[in-house]
C-alpha cells in the first residue's frame, strides 16, 4: 500500500487549509480551553513539546502519551465535527474520491482479518463506533451474514448514508448511548481515540456495552510510531484540533486494562510510515536525521520494504491496533 493511494495529496493539502480557517472560527479563544490530565493514564505531570496552529502539545511524563493541553471542551469539538466546512470537505472532497480505494485497501482487509481472527463472534451483535460511511460494516456483513450490524454514528448525514445501505444506526455518540448494556459481542473503533476529548470515557462505555467475553477492537495513532517521531511537529498526523491524543502501545494497553479489559493484542500493523517520511522529505523538504535522507535517496525498494516490516514488527509503526476482552 502507498500513501498516495488512500490519500490524495492535493486534496489533503486543501483540507488542511480549511481546517486552519475553521480553527479561527470554532476555537477563537484558547482561554476557553481546559487543562486536562493525561488522557491515557490520568497523570498530571507533563512536559511541553511544541505548539501547532495555536494548540499546545505536551508529553505525559508517566506514559509518554502526546496530547493537546489545554484542550477545547467536548461541546465545541462536537460542533466542529458536525458542522465545520473542513469536516464537510473531508467527506465530499477528500474521502469520497478515495472511498473505493479505501474500501479495497483498508476496510476489506480489515474485515477479513477480524473475521479470521474472531470467528466465534460471527453471529453476534457488532457495533462500529464512528461508523462513517459504513464501509467496514458493509464488508464485514459479506463475511458474517448472520451477525447483526449496528452503526453508532452521531452525524445525521453519515447516519443517513449508513441507513441507505440497510445498516441499522444508533444516531448518537457512544458516550451518550443509553440502555444497551451487555448487548454487543464486538465493538470496533477505527481511528477514533485520537480525536476524543476523553478517550477513557469511550473505553469505559465500551466495557459496559459489551457482554462478558465480548471484544473491543480499536485502531489509533501511535505517538511513538516512526513517522510521527521522525517528523514530530512537522508530521501531518499531528493535526489539531482533530488529533488530540497520541497514545502508544503501553499507554493504550494501560488505559484498557484500567477500564477492566484483558488486553489480548497490541500491535502496530502500519505500512505507511516509511512512505510518509520519504514523502515529507521529497515534497515538503522536511528536516530529519541524516540517515533517513540517506535511505530515501539510496535505499532500494526492497530495503525500504524490509525497514517498514521491521518497524511494524517491533511496535514502531504509527498505526496501532488493540484487541481487548471484557472478562
Amino acid at each position: 500500500m502507498k500513501e498516495q493511494e488512500i490519500r490524495n495529496r492535493e486534496a489533503f493539502v486543501h483540507y488542511l487549509r480549511l481546517v486552519r480557517e475553521d480553527i479561527a472560527n470554532y476555537f477563537p479563544d484558547s482561554e476557553q480551553f481546559r487543562t486536562a490530565p493525561c488522557p491515557a493514564c490520568g497523570a498530571l505531570e507533563h512536559t511541553a513539546e511544541f505548539a501547532k496552529a495555536g494548540f499546545e502539545y505536551v508529553a505525559c511524563r508517566a506514559c509518554s502519551t502526546l496530547f493537546v493541553n489545554p484542550r477545547p471542551a467536548a461541546a465545541p469539538l462536537r460542533e466542529f465535527y458536525l458542522r465545520s466546512p473542513s469536516s464537510r470537505y473531508w467527506v465530499e472532497g477528500f474521502f469520497l474520491p478515495v472511498a473505493e480505494a479505501r474500501r479495497e485497501k483498508i476496510f476489506r482487509p480489515r474485515a477479513r482479518q477480524i473475521a479470521g481472527q474472531l470467528p466465534a463472534l460471527a453471529r453476534e451483535t457488532i457495533g462500529d463506533i464512528g461508523a462513517g460511511f459504513g464501509l467496514f460494516l458493509e464488508e464485514l456483513r459479506i463475511l458474517w451474514p448472520h451477525a447483526r450490524m449496528i452503526a453508532i454514528e452521531p452525524s445525521a448525514e453519515m447516519a443517513a448514508i449508513c441507513r441507505s445501505k440497510a445498516i441499522e444506526v444508533l444516531e448518537t455518540t457512544v458516550e451518550d448511548l443509553e440502555g444497551q448494556e451487555s448487548r454487543f459481542g464486538l465493538l470496533t473503533a477505527f481511528e477514533l481515540l485520537e480525536h476524543l476529548y476523553q478517550p477513557r470515557a469511550l473505553v469505559e462505555k465500551a466495557w459496559r456495552l459489551l457482554r462478558p467475553g465480548g471484544r473491543l477492537l480499536a485502531t489509533t495513532l501511535n505517538g511513538q510510531g516512526f513517522d510521527i517521531q521522525v517528523l514530530w511537529e512537522q508530521s501531518k498526523s499531528v493535526f489539531p484540533p482533530h488529533h488530540l491524543n497520541f497514545l502508544n502501545p503501553r499507554a493504550l494497553a494501560g488505559l484498557c486494562e484500567s477500564a477492566g479489559f484483558v488486553v489480548e493484542e497490541v500491535s502496530t500493523p502500519g505500512q505507511l510510515d516509511w512512505d510518509i517520511v520519504e514523502g515529507a522529505i521529497a515534497n515538503d523538504s522536511a528536516t530529519t536525521d541524516r540517515i533517513w535522507r540517506l535511505l530515501a535517496r539510496n535505499g532500494s525498494e526492497r530495503c525500504k520494504r524490509e525497514f517498514q516490516a521491521w518497524l511494524s514488527r517491533h511496535g514502531l509503526s504509527s498505526h496501532m491496533r488493540i484487541l481487548a476482552r471484557k472478562p
Binding site: S64, Q224, V230, H314, G315, L316
Partner: peptide, 9 residues
C-alpha cells in the same frame, strides 16, 4: 525515536 527504541524494543 531511537531513545524510545532502546528503552522499549
Amino acid at each position: 525515536f531511537w531513545r524510545y527504541f532502546f528503552r522499549h524494543c
